[in-house]
């Protein structure tokens, strides 16, 4: 265990050092993310200001939803997105072989050798927005609600990381899997809005097929005491279980793909 912690620290240190080699690009990346998300949120705020509510959600409810959405995504993606997006290149160029001959868990190496501090801009924006939204929403904050919020943030980040892992792992067998991220980000966009505004088929997709509903819209609906279609009273528990269940599925999928890895030739 201690060795794993030391290795994680060393891998993250190496990655940060590579990023610091290009400090201008790093800072510019943070600023551009901050600005682009700020623009999207401003647009949503203007729509709500014009129409009053969105599916029964006020601007402060929406601010809570957007902040949870961004925070779970940025934490989950910092452990997975750039790492697994590069997976098909690693497979095609044979670099994956060089990782597989190291006496270290392949997933652990992938995740921590690419731990992306570039999401700092996302995190700053999400935490700032959440700090404001917490004071505005109609929630009687108590220890259980705070613990529920923290647990669902962790669970949501696990859902993101698990889905990214599964898409990346698919490249081990199919060689190309990057196109699956388009599907991921399609549902990720939908998870920015209250689930009740969507027709039933999309609700089913968001809860059961690509369970992005659990990274934001479902846990925030539970916190705010709003109805959750299909799940009802089970929604809170489902939010807490979604992360571990998806992580388990991702682990099985990852192992199966590693066992069936063929390389890309040679």
């Amino acid at each position: 265990m201690l060795r794993t912690v030391i290795l994680m620290r060393e891998l993250v240190r190496m990655y940060i050092r590579t990023k610091v080699e290009y400090p201008g690009a790093m800072v510019l990346g943070w600023v551009s993310q901050f600005v682009s998300y700020g623009a999207v949120y401003t647009a949503i705020a203007l729509i709500i200001a014009r129409f009053g509510m969105l599916g029964g959600w006020t601007w402060s409810d929406m601010a809570m939803l957007l902040s949870v959405h961004l925070l779970t995504y940025s934490v989950g993606a910092s452990f997975s997105f750039t790492q697994f997006r590069e997976m098909e290149d690693l497979v095609r160029q044979g670099t994956m072989d060089a990782i597989l001959v190291k006496p270290i868990g392949t997933w652990l190496y992938m995740v921590f050798s690419g731990f992306n501090i570039g999401y700092a801009g996302h995190v700053v924006l999400a935490v700032g927005l959440m700090a404001w939204a917490i004071t505005q929403v109609d929630v009687a904050w108590s220890l259980p609600t705070v613990l529920f919020l923290v647990a669902t943030l962790v669970s949501g980040a696990m859902v993101v990381c698990a889905l990214m892992t599964m898409i990346g792992a698919t490249a081990l067998v199919w060689v190309r899997s990057r196109h699956l991220y388009s599907i991921f980000f399609g549902f990720w966009e939908l998870a920015r809005y209250p689930i009740t505004i969507f027709p039933l088929p999309i609700q089913v997709l968001l809860l059961a097929v690509v369970p992005m509903g659990f990274i934001s819209t479902v846990p925030v609906a539970v916190l705010l005491g709003k109805p959750v279609p299909l799940l009802g009273d089970f929604a809170g528990l489902a939010c807490l279980l979604a992360g571990p269940v998806m992580a388990g599925l991702a682990m099985l999928h990852w192992r199966w793909c590693l066992r069936n890895y063929q390389g890309a030739g040679g």
């Binding site: 060393e10 190496m14 050092r17 590579t18 080699e21 290009y22 670099t95």
Partner: peptide, 27 residues
């Protein structure tokens, strides 16, 4: 293992850093 056409070194960092990481990975 040495792959002639694939590097195991960290491209942007000094050689010594890759060696140090190797020390940790292989204990």
């Amino acid at each position: 293992v040495v792959f002639g056409q694939r590097s195991q070194l960290w491209w942007d960092l000094p050689v010594r850093d890759s060696f140090d990481l190797h020390r940790h990975i292989y204990e």
